[in-house]
């Protein structure tokens, strides 16, 4: 079960012995292949359609559908050039990076520290506090918006990046503490006891044993938090009120409102929004699903 959830072994049963048996099996599965083929088309076509559109010249987009692209094989990078230079996508892409990177590192650090205390240190009300954290996991962030906004305004936090970093970090902590604590308690007790007997401090045990052994879980949480912050719209709508702090999600939304059906602009900007999460996802998905299943199941 620690296998990648996306791979795994099929449950096809015994191997067919004769040619005729093989043919019968193939025929039995034809409906399965047809349905799965249809599933693949339905799940690929919308995204690929927009991808093709993002590379087509504006005039072609207005006169023919992307599925007719074979008739008009003309591609261009003009759409990307236009949204990067003229439609504020480049600046908002950079803003998204400025928002996302600290909003990923801070919760990893703070959640690891707290999860370590909840799993290996002894203090009064430990279980009560942990259950409260589990309860916070369910709280809709909406209940926090109005008070937090009023709290931030006098400090000018809604005009810069700091308010966004703090809000993203705080809202991500319950999940991080829950996830990492459940991983940390599975670490071998003997190893931690031995280090303590050798005179390692509490911080020393955390830094030299707990963190290095928990890299899969910490990385999984980090990837999740990166994707979530990058893709976030709601928290940015509330807390990114400064002109220079808008992330790419808000910029794409603004373009959608302004250019309703100018699909050359919308397609290219949507792909610039999707590009980084997809890259992270495809390069790290195995590591990430594995880390989680291992963390929860071991």
């Amino acid at each position: 079960m620690t296998q990648d959830a996306l791979t795994g072994v099929g449950m096809a049963g015994t191997k067919p012995r004769t040619t005729s048996e093989r043919i019968v099996r193939a025929l039995n599965r034809t409906p399965v292949h047809i349905v799965l083929g249809l599933v693949a088309v339905v799940w690929l076509a919308p995204t690929i359609g927009l991808l093709i559109t993002s590379f087509r010249p504006r005039s072609d987009i207005q006169t023919s559908g992307w599925w007719e692209v074979l008739g008009t094989l003309r591609f261009t990078l003009d759409n990307y050039r236009e949204v990067l230079a003229g439609q504020g996508i480049f600046g908002s892409f950079i803003n998204s990076l400025i928002i996302t990177i600290p909003s990923t590192i801070l919760p990893i650090f703070l959640a690891s520290l707290a999860a370590y205390a909840f799993s290996w240190l002894r203090f009064p009300f430990r279980d009560t506090l942990f259950l409260l954290t589990v309860a916070l996991l369910m709280i809709p962030v909406q209940v926090a918006f109005i008070p937090v906004l009023q709290l931030m305004r006098p400090f000018g936090l809604t005009q810069g990046f700091a308010g966004l970093w703090l809000a993203h970090t705080a809202f991500a902590l319950p999940f991080g503490i829950f996830l990492l604590r459940n991983f940390f308690i599975t670490l071998p007790k003997d190893l931690i006891e031995a280090a303590r007997i050798d005179g390692a401090s509490t911080w020393g045990v955390f830094r030299t044993i707990v963190v290095p052994l928990s890299v899969p879980a910490i990385a999984a949480y980090g990837i999740f938090q990166f994707l979530w912050t990058w893709n976030d719209l709601l928290i940015a709508l509330i807390f990114a009120q400064g002109q220079g702090t808008r992330p790419i999600t808000i910029q794409v939304l603004t373009l959608l409102g302004t250019y309703g059906s100018q699909w050359h602009i919308l397609a290219a900007s949507a792909f610039l929004l999707m590009f980084l999460p997809l890259l992270v996802f495809f390069s790290l998905q195995r590591y990430f699903v594995q880390g989680l299943l291992a963390g929860s199941v071991k």
Binding site: L50, L233, T249, S269, A270, L273
Partner: peptide
Amino acid sequence: AIAATALGVI
């Protein structure tokens, strides 16, 4: 992995 904003455009 796709942002809801991009899903909306798609």
